[in-house]
Write a protein that binds this DNA or RNA. Structure first.
Lengths: 232, 232
DNA sequence: CGTCGTCTTGATCTTTCTCAACCTGTGTGG
DNA sequence: CCACACAGGTTGAGAAAGATCAAGACGACG
């Protein structure tokens, strides 16, 4: 489905929608303040006080939900890159609904919910700018997969076809496995199967699509099995 | 987690955020037009031209994505009730990313993307109103579950605890199964298990929580050794 | 160069998906 | 008003897929 079409490599304040709307480069001032975060750092925590809205300038941030004792990290359900706003729920509710964690060294901008609200109220079209950001991000998120969506190999093939993040090394395998509703072990085995078929080439951190036609074949839903009579 | 806290029974134009912002009841006029849709009717289709923005006034609408030949209905990933906006992606992209289908007789309001855009541009604070709607809906959606989130029985127990829709008869079992990343057959069996334990009472269309303590017990992660929490 | 975290591989067992048949309530038409 | 078809739900038996548990390999980093 829809290609993830945003995602430039990084973002300058002049090309950032918020910065542009603020008139950065023409004497304007963006309400957002830059922060650097190292890989692994949490930006905010699910259930914690939602004081700030965040904006990804460079890097990659994973959103997780429903952390529990079992899987300490919770369910990773999406990853946001440059140009995406995160933690926007701060504008409408007192606590964050997700935890956000940088998966690689990242630059993020922040503003308090109040600053953001003022900014939106003060400028014509600003709220619309934010709305667009939120809607675009939303329409890019794919629902998490599960076993009822086809075999692990098929789910991986679909993901690799549709999502450029699948072949980059930005996202840890653990996170990708989460998107696909499987364990890292299962992801690893599925990648191995595809590699053995000559569909892809893998290293421990990268995937390269070797044969797109074969990958599309692997992504196709299995034809309903032709009767149990088939005794091979 | 987060209780689904919106969801009044139905909505009048005067209590609807869009209607209120339009000044309905004070001589204002809402850009949205009422339509009735029977259970099972599709409002719009994934990939189809995104001409309209929708607003649920009464009833329940399920959003699905990634329909394919195999499972014609696609993956149901959320359901929206009174007060929710759907198809808002029309404001930022040319095609719908989901299919929307009324699961019970519903009243929905529509406006063309242009009308909506004009409405937002013309009124102070209107875009912010829409933004809030979108953000609230978003923060209420739970990520789909999958087999790696625990057994079917546990996933069902968690859902019943957290989501009031689980016990109402509004959502078809097939849809709930979709949210939980399992097939209807599996959902049926899991409900049977819980019923046999005296946790719930079920009919073909309803679920009643008979013993909340037992339900919480069933929702608890199986006491397996916690995996090494990867906190860097 | 050694430690650590992440990923991979292996063996085993449980779960859930499959396929098919059977209910049951609802709506339709005679 | 009843027979009947239909959709959605339930049940059952079997097989396959993935979860588990455990251990080893690889790469990053101090």
């Amino acid at each position: 489905m829809a290609a993830r079409d945003l995602e430039p490599g990084a973002l300058a304040c002049t090309t950032c929608p918020i910065g542009a709307a603020s008139g950065v480069g023409h004497g304007g001032r963006c309400p957002l303040v830059d922060r650097r975060r190292r890989a692994g750092a949490y930006l905010y925590l699910e259930g914690g006080p939602a004081e700030k809205v965040w904006f990804v300038k460079e890097g990659r941030v994973v959103l997780t939900r429903e952390a529990d004792d079992r899987r300490g990290e919770g369910i990773a359900w999406t990853a946001r890159g440059p140009g995406a706003m995160i933690g926007a729920e701060a504008l409408v509710r007192p606590t964050y609904v997700d935890s956000a964690r940088a998966v690689c060294d990242s630059t993020v901008c922040t503003a308090s919910r109040e600053a953001m609200a003022h900014w939106m109220a003060a400028r014509e079209g600003a709220a619309r700018t934010v709305l667009d950001l939120v809607l675009i991000a939303q329409s890019v998120d794919a629902p998490r997969r599960s076993g009822s969506d086809g075999s692990a190999v098929r789910r991986v093939a679909v993901f690799l076809l549709e999502d450029p993040r699948g072949t980059s090394s930005e996202l840890p395998r653990r996170v990708i496995a989460g998107f696909l509703g499987m364990l890292p072990e299962t992801l690893s085995r599925a990648l191995k199967v595809l590699a053995e078929r000559g569909v892809i080439e893998t290293t421990r951190r990268t995937v390269r699509i070797a044969d797109r036609a074969k990958l599309e074949e692997a992504a196709r839903p299995e034809p309903v099995r032709p009767r149990a009579a088939a005794v091979r």
